[in-house]
Design a protein around this nucleic acid. Structure first.
Length: 923
RNA sequence: GGGCACUUAGCUCAGUGGUAGAGCGACUGUUUUACACACAGUAGGUCGGGGGUUCGAUCCCCUCAGUGCCCACCA
């Protein structure tokens, strides 16, 4: 824009033509990076941006945090602080997995049929694309974040911090692997933390079943096969005579004996006062079971179907089994009564709404109580302040009643759990030193694979897809970081080609061909359809005898011996073995000492990679190979470390120096900016995120990760409805920003919104602030039209009114400053709106109009001009954190003499040391 | 079952111990060279009901009602 006051600006403010250029100018200036901010800046101010999920576009909720945090950052930067706003993105494990699962579903695929490394690769690309889109959206919203420090939760240096914390927790006995009852989502095939389940009220039948002489009520009769006791209240006289006895009961799968126990958890007033105890499938029963040392007898599997313990009901889904069991109970007279509409709450997956199946599984749990204790103390001692205050109580209550946190997830997308198990006996071998790695890779796809034809020794070449798969496998190997020393492959063409592609992609690794790694010889069956053969032969297991082929044990022996030979030959090296589905299974069966039947659960897909590491012999079973836990960490376990992890991961940053050699666990950034000043986020993730950041921050650094938590509300539409795509009431922040200007959207999100209260937004409101931006534009236009540079040399004769107005403006500046210091954004924004429009425009400008007449006395004209421009400059500065684009544009348009910058004329930005009220120096 | 918050103009919300404000909307008028994305004006509220404290309450206390949210989740 021109600085010549005679050049006319457009009549109306058009943000489209201005915003991008302004942002580019800011970014090019380097002022977003605290290291290149001009001026003396000893006093840091830092905010770590809540990393948006890299699985989609930004929504209006993101615009809220961008606005509030950007206001804070710009405010403190203008006040001379060394201000850092560190941006990032979250891989958002389960959330992204769900989004990606849906995408796959649309393409007719599903994640359980895709090799892990291939799925990972696809998800990596998906999130990287989203990340770029998101970054640009954040820029559009005016975020003055330091992009040079940006982090992603899967960056290697972040992962290093996170896995280090995992190991430290384990060492400190704050992390354990335990068989505990967990929330299992049958659809997503993963466990969920207690925060990731919701309760829904349902009306289901309550069945009163006969257990010998007793009658008990349940909504889940199908779990009866897993009952290991019947419980009554200890003081219940009705049943005292049974306690401690074993009852002979008739069940649907024959007569059985069941213990009667007494436990406080039983409510004698509910139903008959008798309860069946199923420790494997009910959280409360699991607790009762622990108290009474009851057997945990699982009858439902991860597939949500009954298992072989349920006899004739095996294989049925829970709902089907319930119907059948009830019908059969009724037929046998074992059902005393049915209450058809019993209202109760059912736990469901918060994403898909399917009923959560409580299962007992080995998982990793963080022992929360000791961590929570410190997090409670920090807030009580006001080391961390929570705004608004009422959330403090919510926070404390949750922490006081906290339960251990299951951090294992059975999904692909996430940070792989840094724990290793002995492949022989499953023992946890956390610190087993790795000396050599073996990667078993199945060959890529052939046409026969696609046609489901048995290949055996038939020499079929890879097809195009197979070659691409091989390349993908090579990329995955490369990315695993290991240096591959050699590729050993079966001599059959499909394996050899795969091995050669991998070796080439890895930069010309030696390829060794070995006939012993061939697939099993399927003799007369080769070329036939795989399913036909399975149907014709034994449907449950592989045939031991194949006409003209190789016996199973011979085959296993051949492969196992070959592996043993190579192992001895390639000690302490990293070797890829490219072989076949059957051969890899044979190896697994030998190495892990498991049956073919169990192997069926682990499909070996084309070009999939299995990774084993060699280490010391296991102290329990002597096997010297380990494999990494296939599970990944709950996303919140990594994001819970975000404030310190991001600062510790600034080692490569050219401006922020390398790590301190004295302590590997620090960086200059960490020392400068930690603990951060403010954590600004939504109240909906107080437990998920904020409390965990406080706990993990205290645990790892001894300090809380931030001094103040500011919680904003959820954005709703003007009918108080949550925004959702299905309701069609979503406001796309970028869409409205493009239409009305980013500043208008920002103001609309600030005015009238108190901390912790839900935010109501409507297009009308945004339009209102678009009008305000236009008002500012025209105030500027008027001032510049009347501006007379010649008056700069005239000594102004200020009137009493001029002085009063100057004082008024100074008071406003003080008030806005105090509001921002105390996080009263809504106050400040509204006061500025009001002042600019109804005081400055309506009164000051109107009053000055006659005085600015060129025919008037010069001293008075100079006074009017000086007063107006002086206050106007202050106003622009005060408005800048809220409406950065237009204020910057107008500021730029002021003649340099009016800008009175303390920095050089080339440092054109309002954001440098411009705040009208200086900060008192902190001691 | 426990907890928290809210109930002020048609809508969305500020606000203060001394009998109420903003934005949007409605209505009337005005195209006056900063702005019709504007200006000038008008209408509209027993500040959820009841009780108490007080000279005085929308604001403090009690209670009732309604709304929303969070936590827990005994078959």
């Amino acid at each position: 824009m021109a600085t010549d006051p005679r050049v006319e600006l457009a009549k109306a403010y058009d943000p489209k033509h201005i915003e991008d250029a302004i942002y580019r100018k800011w970014e090019d200036s380097g002022f977003f990076n605290p290291d290149t901010l001009p001026g003396e800046r000893g006093n840091p101010f830092s905010i770590i941006m809540p990393p948006p999920n890299a699985n989609g576009a930004l929504h209006i909720g993101h615009a809220v945090f961008v606005t509030l945090q950007d206001i804070l950052i710009r405010f403190w930067r203008m006040r001379g602080r060394k201000a850092l706003w560190l941006p990032g993105a979250d891989h958002a494990g389960f959330e992204t997995q769900v989004v990606f699962d849906k995408k796959l579903e649309k393409e007719g695929r599903n994640r359980f049929q895709i090799p892990r490394n291939q799925l990972w690769q696809e998800m990596w690309e998906f999130t990287q694309e989203n990340k770029v889109v998101m970054e640009n959206q954040l820029r559009k919203l005016g975020a003055s974040a330091d992009w040079s420090r940006e982090k992603f939760t899967l960056d290697p240096d972040i992962v290093a911090v996170v896995t280090d914390t995992f190991k430290k927790l384990y060492k400190d006995d704050l992390l354990y692997r335990g068989e505990r009852i967990v929330n299992w989502c049958v659809k997503h095939q993963t466990t969920l933390s207690d925060l990731e389940i919701k309760y829904e009220e349902r009306a289901d039948p309550l069945y009163h079943m006969r257990y010998g002489p007793l009658v008990l009520a349940t909504v889940r009769p199908e779990t009866k096969f897993g009952d290991t006791a019947v419980a009554v209240h200890p003081k219940d006289k009705r049943y005292a005579k049974y306690v401690g006895k074993e009852l002979e009961i008739e069940t649907l799968i024959g007569p059985a004996k069941i213990k009667v126990i007494a436990d406080e958890a039983v409510d004698p007033k509910f139903g008959t006062g008798v309860v069946k105890v199923t420790p494997a499938h009910d959280p409360d029963d699991f607790e009762i079971g622990k108290r009474h040392n009851l057997e945990v007898r699982p009858v439902i599997g991860k597939d949500g179907r009954l298992n072989e313990r349920a006899g004739p009901y095996a294989g049925l889904k829970v709902a089907e089994a319930r119907e059948r069991v009830v019908a059969d109970l009724q037929a046998r007279g074992l059902l005393a009564k049915i209450e058809p509409e019993y209202k109760h709450n059912v736990a469901v997956c918060y994403k898909c709404g399917n009923v959560v199946e409580p299962l007992v599984m080995p998982q990793w749990f963080v022992r929360m109580a000791p961590l929570a204790e410190k997090a409670i103390a920090a807030v009580r001692a006001k080391e961390v302040q929570i705004i608004p205050d009422r959330y403090k109580k919510v926070y404390l209550h949750w922490l006081k009643n906290i339960r251990d946190w299951n951090i294992s997830r059975q999904i692909t997308w996430g940070i792989r759990i840094p724990a290793w198990f002995c492949i022989g006996c499953g023992e946890v071998r956390m610190d087993a030193p790795i000396r050599g790695n073996w990667y078993f890779v199945r060959h890529g796809e052939t046409d026969w694979n696609a046609e489901r034809r048995v290949q055996g020794h038939s020499d079929v070449p890879l097809n195009d897809r197979g070659r691409e798969q091989a390349r993908q496998a090579a990329i995955a190997l490369k990315e695993s970081g290991a240096t591959i020393d050699a590729v050993i492959t079966s001599d059959l063409q499909r394996a050899r080609e795969t091995g050669e592609i991998i070796a080439r992609e890895l930069g010309g690794v030696e390829v060794i061909s070995d006939t012993a790694f061939r697939e099993r010889n399927w003799g007369d069956f080769e070329g036939a359809n795989y399913d036909d053969i399975r149907a014709r032969l034994m449907p449950e297991r592989d045939p031991h005898e194949i006409p003209g082929g190789e016996a199973l044990n011979e085959f296993e022996e051949r492969v196992a011996q070959a592996f043993e030979r190579h192992r001895n030959h390639h000690m302490h090296r990293n070797i890829v073995i490219v072989s076949h589905g059957g051969a890899i299974r044979a190896l697994l069966a030998r190495l892990k000492n498991i049956s073919w039947n169990e192997l069926r659960a682990t499909p070996v897909h084309n070009a999939s990679i299995l990774h084993f590491s060699v280490t010391h012999p296991c102290p329990r079973c002597g096997v010297d190979m380990v494999e990494q836990d296939p599970d990944v960490l709950d996303t919140w376990f990594s994001s819970g470390q975000w404030p310190f992890a991001t600062l510790l991961a600034q080692r490569g940053n050219s401006k922020s120096e390398t790590r301190n050699p004295k302590s590997p666990w620090t960086t200059k950034d960490f020392e400068t900016f930690y603990p951060t000043d403010v954590m600004e986020t939504g109240y909906d993730i107080l437990f998920f995120w904020v409390s965990r950041m406080i706990m993990l921050g205290l645990y790892r650094t001894g300090q809380p990760p931030f001094r103040t938590v500011y919680l904003h509300g959820l954005v709703r539409d003007k009918d108080r409805q949550k925004m959702s795509k299905s309701k069609g009431n979503v406001i796309d922040p970028l869409g409205v920003a493009a239409e009305y200007g980013t500043d208008a959207v920002r103001m609309a999100l600030v005015v009238g919104n108190l901390p912790g209260n839900d935010i109501i937004i409507s297009e009308e409101k945004i339009r209102g602030y678009r009008n305000f931006a236009n008002k500012l534009w025209n105030i500027h236009r008027f001032l510049m039209m009347r501006y007379d540079p010649a008056l700069a040399d005239v000594r102004p004769k200020l009137s009493a009114e001029d002085r009063r107005r100057q004082k008024e403006a100074a008071a406003l500046a003080k008030r806005i400053t105090a509001d921002l210091e105390k996080f009263r954004f809504h106050h400040a924004a509204e006061a500025l709106y009001h002042y600019a429009w109804h005081t400055f425009a309506d009164q000051l400008i109107e009053a000055a109009k006659p005085r600015l007449d060129p025919a008037g006395p010069a001293a008075d004209r100079a006074a009017a001009q000086a007063t107006l421009f002086g206050i106007y400059g202050t106003l622009l500065k005060l408005l800048h954190p809220f409406m950065p684009f237009i204020t910057e544009a107008l500021w730029q348009d002021l003649p340099a003499s009016l800008r009175r910058m303390s920095t050089s004329a080339e440092a054109p930005l309002l954001l440098v040391e411009s705040w009208p009220v200086p900060e008192r120096v902190r001691t």
